[in-house]
Each structure stands twice: as structure tokens, then as C-alpha cells.
Amino acid sequence: MPATKFDEPTRERILRIASDLFYRQGITATGVDEITRQTGVAKTTMYRAFGSKDGLVAAYLERRGADWRAHLEEQVSAAADDPAGRLLAVFDVLAAWMAGDDFRGCPFINAAGELCDPEHPGVVATREHRAALTAYLEDLAREAGATDPAALVRRLLLLYDAAMVDGQLDGDPLRAARDAKAAAEVLVAAAMPGAGAGRERAHRRPPVD
């Protein structure tokens, strides 16, 4: 059914409230009855707007991903002039978000852990977000002159994910983000041209007279 001028604000209200519930409580723990009660709309209205709860979950993750990537790119661009510095600034932006009182871990990792079906619309949205984030970081790594941008980004994403998981489980998100950035600095430096030769020279023994 085509959206009307009334339908679009209603859809946005459902999405906003459901997104908050999904992130704070979990996707499976949040039922349609609770969503409709808190939004004040009938189930038929919700289904007309999103098709199903699965469709609403996918919309939540798509919006979350788009908003985060836009925020990340804006903050990273403002934080550093050089591409290598921007790669590391990703962890500063991550730390600032993780320091918030509403941090409940990565919404995409959380969703992937809850949704077992690889073809679930929410899992598809999660994979699409990951692909877009990876492409952005690979562009930065390529601009920074990394010898193997894809390999560097895979390793940086391991740190990126680990920071969020550790911050959620350990209860000290800032420490997790700082440690991840410190490790990222080593990876970025090692990924630059000539880094291997530099290490070899540093470890080469002086000649014996």
C-alpha cells in the first residue's frame, strides 16, 4: 500500500521506538505486542508499514547502519587530514560512542547472534552494513598507501569487533577501545611500504670487528 502523508510519520515513530527496544532488550525479547503498545498503533498498521516483524528488524538495522556510517565518516574526516590518521581515528569515534550510557554492544553482532537464519532480512542487512563499512575502510587504507589494504582492514575489523565485545562483557568500554587503537597503530605502521625492511634493519646485528 502506498504511504500517505500520515503514514510516513507513523512509520518513523514505529521504527524509532522499535529500534530502541531492539537494541536495549534484544530482538527476540521484543514482541510485536510491546511495539504496538508503546507506539500506540494497531498491528495492522505496523504490518502495513513493514510487512512483518522481520521487515521491521531489517529496517532497524539498515537505518542503524546508514546512520553510523554517515556519523563515522563525518567524524573521521574532521579528526585527521592524512588517510593513516583517519584509519586510526575510527577507533576514537568508536570509543566516543562506547563511552555513552546507552552502550549495549554492537547492534549488528547482537543481531547476528540472535538471528540464526542466514537468509533472515536482518542478517542480510547486517552483511550489507559490513560490506559497506569494509569498503570505506579499504578506501582509507588504499589512500594511506597500505601494501595490502584488504588484509589490513580484515585485521583492523577484528580489533573493531573485539573492542565492542570486550567493552560490553568487561564493563570498561573505554579501556577496550584504547587497547584496540594501540594494536591498530601497530598494524597500520606494519602495513606501510618499507615497514618490513625497517624491522629487518632494526634487528640486524652490527658487524663484528
Rank of each mutant, 00 (worst) to 15 (best):
H71K: 11
A84C: 13
P107S: 12
P118K: 15
A96G: 04
A112I: 11
H71C: 03
L87M: 06
V90R: 05
D82M: 05
A80H: 14
M98V: 03
P83H: 09
V93P: 00
D117N: 15
C106Y: 00
D101P: 04
R86F: 06
D81L: 13
D102P: 00
A96P: 01
A80C: 13
E119N: 08
A99H: 04
P118C: 14
A84M: 10
V76I: 14
D92M: 04
V90N: 05
G100L: 02
G100M: 01
A99R: 11
L72T: 05
A80V: 11
L88S: 10
P83E: 06
D117Q: 14
N110I: 05
C106H: 01
W68Y: 15
A78S: 04
H120P: 01
A70E: 08
L87R: 07
E119G: 02
D102A: 10
W97N: 08
A111V: 13
R86D: 02
F103N: 02
A89C: 09
A89E: 07
R86C: 05
A78H: 06
A111C: 13
P107I: 13
N110Q: 14
V90T: 08
A112Q: 14
A96N: 04
L87N: 04
A111T: 11
G85Y: 09
E74G: 09
A95Q: 09
D82F: 08
L87Y: 07
Q75C: 11
R69S: 11
H120D: 01
W68A: 09
D81M: 05
G100A: 12
F91W: 09
L72F: 04
D117C: 13
R86G: 03
A78D: 04
L72R: 04
A79I: 10
F108S: 04
H71E: 08
W68C: 04
G105K: 02
L87P: 00
R104L: 06
E119V: 13
Q75G: 08
A99E: 09
G105N: 02
V90G: 00
H120N: 05
D117E: 15
R104F: 12
G100T: 04
C116R: 15
L115Q: 04
P83L: 14
R86P: 06
Q75Y: 00
A80Q: 15
C106A: 06
L87V: 05
W68I: 04
G100Q: 12
C106K: 01
V93W: 07
M98D: 03
A70Y: 07
V76M: 12
H71R: 13
A96V: 10
V76A: 13
A89N: 09
R104Y: 03
H71D: 10
A80S: 09
A95T: 05
N110S: 11
M98T: 02
H71A: 11
V76N: 07
A79H: 12
A95L: 12
D102F: 01
A79V: 08
A80Y: 06
R69A: 10
A79C: 14
A89P: 05
F108V: 12
D81H: 07
A79N: 08
D81C: 05
Q75L: 06
G105Y: 02
G100V: 00
V76F: 07
R69Q: 15
A112W: 08
S77Y: 06
F103V: 01
G100R: 11
L115P: 01
D82Q: 07
A111W: 09
G105W: 02
W97K: 08
R86I: 10
R104H: 11
A96C: 07
H120S: 03
P83R: 15
D81Y: 02
F108E: 06
F108C: 12
A99W: 03
G85F: 10
R104P: 00
